[in-house]
Design a protein around this nucleic acid. Sequence first.
DNA 1: AAACGGGACAACCGCTGGAAT
DNA 2: AATTCCAGCGGTTGTCCCGTT
Length: 288
Amino acid sequence: METDMSFLSKSSSSSSDDEVGLRRGPWTVEEDSLLVNYISQHGEGRWNMLAHRAGLKRTGKSCRLRWLNYLKPDVKRGNLTPQEQLLILELHSKLGNRWSKIAQYLPGRTDNEIKNYWRTRVQKQAKHLKIDSNSAAFQHIIRCLWIPRLVQKIQGSSAIPSIQTSLLDSQYGPYNITEITQTPQVLSLERNSISSSRCCSSSSPSSESMSTNKSPNIISECPKFPPREMGDSVVNVHFPFDDNSYDMDTFSPATGNFLNNYDQMVGGENNLMNGDILAESFWSMDEF
DNA sequence: AAACGGGACAACCGCTGGAAT
DNA sequence: AATTCCAGCGGTTGTCCCGTT
């Protein structure tokens, strides 16, 4: 019979952790082994008690995190594939920063990993471009530059999972990912037509709308993509903006920056930028 | 070779909702 | 009904690694 119930106390602060001799910081191989062995025998859950009984001088919280994000057998390691990146961008446009929700659609990937990807890769691009990553402008860039680029990369790969195949069959544009809130891991793709009138409209998702699943599909909003020849299987390297709408006055070749307020540039149909230059600036920073 | 800086990722913290008592 | 505790979430910080100077 367990008499020492002190381990059941609520997660303590860092200072009190130290007081009771709880370890913090990186996990050692021995600790990992203790945790894995205990869970293999007794299962997971009741983390505070588990930590105590496994002989770990860690909080239950720490044990849970270590298990879920690192030690659990089905955790996938390694870089996110372009397919996974595409899915994250799409899902984030619909779900916002609900990382655990997004992670449900990427088997083997953790919310922490997705969150880190967003912060280190996606937000980095926003920072480089001096745009708020939650702004409609940046959403537009994701829609019209990043995602097409990912699709291009996927098209160039030999192994294409089913979802990607569907995207490719569609030449990217005519499909929406729908019903994502109901059926994690089973995404349905449905055909819908691209309406050019929706492009660059005020319906671009704002930071507020990003938190709902009612925001417009980011793919179908993108102007001039897929490639101008819809039937052509060759991906057009040009990025999405209408040649007739380029506004060189807004771009400074010397600095690589756009001179005016970016929101204004992409916010209205009369305020489009030079997409090729932006694309070059954008992708030169990319790790693809 | 050493110092420095930035990127990537692991881990922690604070908070919240819900279940259990 | 009130309290306590747990699990989970999202934001933030810490640490390691690697490239550059």
